[in-house]
Design a binder for these strands. Structure first.
Lengths: 130, 130
DNA sequence: TTGGCTGCAAAGGATTTGCACAAAT
DNA sequence: ATTTGTGCAAATCCTTTGCAGCCAA
């Protein structure tokens, strides 16, 4: 992955390696401040500004996905192949991923009916345990 | 509408009437700064802080809906009966409303499968003219 | 009358940026 | 040797808040 970035003309610094390592090792959806905390455990020199700058680069390179849920800061995750949407547990804050090809298809149809083509979309279900 | 607010124990001030009038007269999805501009045309005494405070109250009372699209500030509209989602034209910034009961149903089914009940949701299609 | 509003200005939180230095290629 | 990345602190942007006076009920 580091090599892929280098090939894309991105310099892979000590700090960026730390941030990448944190991201690949995270199962949840941390925000910039949390990533900063975790990255500093690996390399205390990592600054919050660099975390933000690196996240911007990684998003541009398609390595990570950024999600802005209601309330609070943006959250990040390694971009897996295949898009997914999110359920947000309003009580625990937990984030659950799901995917529905049926919904995606309906979205495309609706957009097409209005003369549009979807570039990207955002679907979030804010839920409570039934 | 003013009376309904009064009945709910909300004071309807000169400023709030101006803001309400702007909101009911707006076909688009203005943000707080734009509402401030428009409200000042009716009553120059309206401050931006009051716009924000009023929007919070009106949202709590169910009079308006707040939407936070990607990039930029929150946008507001009078809450019509019946929920709708949005298409955002990435080139013009235009916002188009749509509703799909099929999608809503699928969302409910998916949430239910995970043991959840949807409190509210957010679906936005970021599009370009085909 | 009086508790809820208001304007103003200052504070807040998240994110970005200018700068001089450091380090990857 | 270049050119890009870095830390730090200051700056931005949107939004909220403390305070002293104002006004809707």
């Amino acid at each position: 992955m580091s090599q892929a970035l280098r090939d894309a003309g991105v310099r892979v610094t000590r700090q960026r390696e730390a941030i990448l390592q944190v991201l690949t090792g995270s199962e949840d959806h941390p925000d910039a401040a949390e990533l900063h905390r975790r990255a500093q455990a690996l390399d205390p020199s990592v600054s919050l500004a660099t975390v933000y700058r690196t996240l911007t680069v990684l998003e541009r390179e398609g390595v990570i996905a950024r999600h802005s849920f209601e309330n609070g800061s943006a959250r990040f995750e390694i971009a897996e192949p295949g898009h997914h949407d999110h359920i947000v547990d309003l009580d625990s804050g937990e984030i659950i991923e799901f995917h529905s090809e049926k919904i995606e298809e309906l979205q495309r149809r609706i957009a097409a009916e209005m003369g549009y083509e979807i570039v990207h979309h955002r679907l979030e279900l804010y839920c409570r345990k039934a």
